[in-house]
């Protein structure tokens, strides 16, 4: 029984590791400028955690294999070094490991989150609401019209509650359901929630940020590859949470200009 158990643990450990090593399921290819360092940090952690996982399971299995016998009259033995050795070992190995991960991870985090957006970053506002994202481009004047919550009316497609009759800034704001951006251009995304907590998650962009109702947060990124990607909500927001999404279209600058014109005409 004990030997079977030991073998089971080893088989499970190896079987668990295979899909990771073979990359059977892996994160999609990165399309952002800041993504590669996150991916590196990820694979580094994967290697360290994987070794720790396999080592611990193997040692557990081997000890179960070796010592699960009645052995009447036999004396118990102590692992050389005892608890002191283990504690020192844990402090040294795990301590150094987590310190390394922590320091490098902090650097990655700082690179992503603590750097200000560039001066030429293109501002786009995204508004999350039950259960859709809407995007707003400031138009030629570069200014976003003020949001009047009492004017928000989805049945007339006034998703942002902008005052088109009285507010001059509102005339050229372009509101879309799709998020189109030019490739290789830094985007400064201003995040606003209309109702509840939502989240903005694009796997390929390595971007993930919650919307905070009552507080506008922003993030910035640069996409490097043309294509169509999914934006999904990851913060439970109600019954339609599973279907709260939008599409990110990374286009060439020409296509984007064309698209924007087309959208402006449709307003």
């Amino acid at each position: 029984m004990a030997k079977l158990f030991a073998v089971t643990i080893i088989v499970i450990a190896i079987a668990s590791a295979i899909p990771i090593i073979m990359h059977t399921w892996s994160a999609p290819e990165d399309i952002s400028i800041h993504g590669p360092i996150i991916d590196d940090q990820m694979s580094e952690t994967m290697a360290e955690a994987g070794i720790a996982f396999l080592a611990a399971q193997f040692v557990l299995a081997i000890f179960i294999w070796m010592f699960a016998k009645p052995n009447p009259g036999g004396k118990i033995k102590k692992f050389p070094g005892g608890a002191t050795g283990l504690v020192i070992g844990a402090f040294l190995i795990v301590g150094i490991e987590v310190l390394a991960l922590g320091v490098f991870g902090a650097k990655v985090w700082a690179d992503v989150y603590l750097s200000p957006p560039g001066a030429n970053a293109m501002p786009v506002q995204v508004q999350a609401g039950q259960f859709a994202f809407y995007f707003r481009y400031p138009g030629p004047d570069g200014k976003f019209a003020a949001i009047h919550p009492n004017l928000i009316d989805e049945s007339t497609e006034n998703f942002f509650g902008i005052d088109t009759t009285n507010d001059p800034d509102a005339k050229d704001d372009i509101v879309t359901a799709e998020f189109a951006i030019p490739v290789n251009k830094e985007i400064h995304l201003l995040m606003h929630s209309k109702d509840l907590g939502h989240s903005f998650y694009v796997r390929e962009l390595r971007v993930h940020q919650d919307f905070v109702p009552g507080l506008d947060v922003s993030l910035h990124f640069t996409a490097t590859k043309i294509g169509k990607y999914e934006i999904v909500c990851t913060q439970l927001c109600g019954l339609g949470h599973y279907n709260m999404k939008a599409y990110l279209e990374v286009m060439s600058q020409d296509d984007f200009d064309k698209w924007l014109k087309q959208q402006a005409a449709a307003q």
């Binding site: 039950q130 019954l239 279907n243």
Partner: peptide, 12 residues
């Protein structure tokens, strides 16, 4: 009575 679909906010 106004009726809407929250999953498809345009539905009114």
């Amino acid at each position: 009575i106004h009726v809407k679909c929250n999953i498809h906010p345009w539905m009114s």
